[in-house]
Design a protein around this nucleic acid. Structure first.
Length: 209
DNA sequence: TCGAAGATTGTCT
DNA sequence: GACAATCTTCGAG
């Protein structure tokens, strides 16, 4: 299945090329599954395999931040594909996106969940009280906190440190599941959420008790 | 200048 | 299952 049969480490994987992001956003979202997000800070390195991603399709998508047209906030969406778009939400959480480009349309992929690989102790330090590794990164706000991602990384290229997306093992089509997006009110039924089937690190949106 | 909404999460009932 | 926390952004007046 994944990188369990070799000495593969995130550092031995090469960063994904900028051209990877200069494609239709739905293709990028699907292909990001299995890739590895690596963040290096002075505290150490944390990384995780992307197991859940959502596509936001430019100005024609009511749920996309670009829907109202260009503003100060969504300006990164109109910039170079392959950049980070990090924004603060609900006054509490950071969310990480990768900027893509679909025929000139400002679009992005929201990374919603990771399977932790490197720096587990550091992630746990950043998220005190979380005993299980599953709970560290199974949500967009959670993974940003675990990896130490903040607005400082907004508009930073994802091809070089400190924040890098590296090539991982490609997830086969039969292991990819497509569902409606989570946590939004506009065009919420559009099937633009891509997840690794049966992966326990995938978020569940509104968690039911 | 003011008010409302938001791509979430954790806690309480 | 329901709701509060907390703040940035944007549209309206």
């Amino acid at each position: 299945m994944r990188a369990t049969d070799g000495p593969t480490t995130p550092l031995s994987m090469k960063p994904v090329a900028r051209a990877f992001f200069a494609r239709p956003v739905v293709e990028v979202a699907r292909d990001l599954l299995g890739c590895v997000l690596v963040h290096e800070t002075r505290d150490g390195r944390t990384s995780g395999m992307i197991v859940e991603a959502e596509a936001y399709i430019g100005e024609d998508d009511p749920a996309c931040h670009a829907a109202p047209g260009p503003t100060d906030r969504n300006e990164p969406l109109y910039g170079e594909p392959g950049m980070a778009y990090v924004y603060f939400i609900y006054g509490v959480h950071w969310c990480f996106n990768a900027v893509t480009r679909e025929e000139g349309s400002p679009s992005a992929v929201l990374v919603r969940a990771l399977e932790p690989l490197d720096g587990l102790p550091l992630m746990q330090r950043r998220r005190p009280g979380i005993a299980s590794d599953v709970g560290l990164t199974n949500g967009p706000g959670k993974l940003c906190k675990a990896l130490g991602i903040t607005g400082d990384l907004n508009r930073k290229p994802l091809q070089r440190k400190p924040l890098v997306v590296r090539e991982g093992d490609r997830v086969s089509d039969k292991d990819v599941e497509v569902t409606p997006r989570i946590g939004i009110t506009k065009s919420a039924d559009w099937p633009l959420r891509y997840i690794v089937r049966a992966n326990k690190y995938v978020s569940r949106g509104k968690v039911s008790a």
